[in-house]
Simulated scan of single mutants.
Amino acid sequence: MSDIAAPHSGDLMDRVYRYQRHIYDLTRKYYLLGRDHLIASLNPPERGHVLEIGCGTGRNLIAAARAYPRARFYGLDISSEMLATARANIERAGLSDRITLARGDAAAFDPAAIFGRVSFDRVFFSYSLSMVPPWRTALECAAAALAPGGRLHVVDFGQQERLPRVFRAMLFVWLKSFHVTPRPDLFQALCDIAEAEGGAVRTAPLYRGYAWYGEIRAL
């Protein structure tokens, strides 16, 4: 596993997660719903290359690497604090030879420069777009990093459209305290990118709209 520095500042995310990272996976498993659904949907090709943007503690990369033992994985995050935890978790899992980490900005990264690869068979975001201010730009960068026939997968907070309004209001206030903003036009953005790139899109609300899942298939 290599850990390649990037020139982007992740000071805010480092402050947010400096202490949370130690209990992140223990607490988030109760409300970051749909992550395993995304991992099960990846199904990369034999010896494929998979990139997670906003990899956090490495939880998803470890789960995906175990599910697809013939694939190679890469993780990008802007927080050096999160990457330190991810590095330790990946080493503990014995997957350092199959997972490469790099520090970088989801909305401005050069995969060839930091990973030595121009494109990936699968790229995914798992509850990270809601923390990226220029999230549409991040989606466009991810789509641009897809190999021909590749797929972009996204799971994040939905609009709670089939859940009680009071629950939605309380959840959004709580998420805001962690600099998390659910994207109400996420599905439309995926459709716009797919149309511009000539790809196909699939979207679906999960858990009564608690989470949203989307997928772009490049041609």
Rank of each mutant, 00 (worst) to 15 (best):
V155C: 04
A93H: 01
S126W: 11
A63V: 15
L26E: 10
A5Q: 11
R28N: 13
L146I: 14
R21D: 13
G94I: 12
Y31P: 09
L190F: 05
G214T: 00
S128C: 05
I99R: 04
R66P: 05
G104P: 09
A63D: 14
R168L: 05
R162D: 15
N60D: 15
W212R: 04
P205H: 05
P45H: 08
G34W: 07
T100V: 15
C141E: 12
L129V: 13
L146S: 11
V50Y: 06
L163S: 02
G34E: 11
R21L: 12
R103W: 07
G10V: 12
I23G: 03
E140T: 14
Y24A: 00
L190N: 02
A200F: 07
S177F: 05
W135Y: 04
D156N: 09
Q160I: 12
G104E: 09
F125S: 05
G54W: 07
L175W: 04
L26R: 11
G149N: 11
R35M: 10
L152Y: 06
V173T: 12
Y207R: 05
L206H: 00
D110C: 10
Y74Q: 04
R165T: 12
S9N: 14
Y213P: 07
R168A: 07
S41I: 11
V118C: 08
F178T: 09
G10H: 07
R87K: 07
R59E: 03
L12G: 11
I23V: 10
G214S: 05
A93R: 01
A102G: 01
R103P: 06
D121S: 04
A144G: 08
A196G: 00
E215C: 14
E91D: 10
Q188E: 14
A145N: 07
G104V: 13
A65W: 10
D36M: 11
H22D: 15
H179L: 10
A145T: 15
D3A: 12
Y30Q: 08
A138H: 06
R168S: 06
E215V: 14
V16Y: 00
A147E: 12
Y19R: 13
F115N: 05
Y74C: 01
R122N: 12
L190H: 06
A204Y: 02
L12H: 15
W174T: 13
D185C: 07
Q160A: 06
K176S: 08
I4C: 07
I193K: 01
W135D: 03
G198F: 01
V155F: 04
V155I: 15
A67N: 05
A142G: 03
E46A: 14
V118Q: 15
Y127P: 01
F125Y: 11
D185G: 03
P182S: 01
A196W: 02
W212G: 03
L83G: 00
L83W: 06
R66E: 15
G158P: 04
A147W: 03
E197M: 06
L61A: 05
A40E: 15
A86L: 00
A65V: 14
W135F: 02
L152I: 12
I53W: 02
Q159L: 02
E197D: 11
A169R: 07
G94R: 02
R87Q: 10
G209A: 04
G199F: 05
A88T: 06
R162M: 15
A169Q: 08
I62T: 00
L42D: 07
T137V: 15
R47C: 14
Y68S: 13
G209I: 12
R202D: 04
L139A: 02
G198V: 01
F178G: 09
L152T: 09
A67F: 02
G10P: 10
G104T: 13
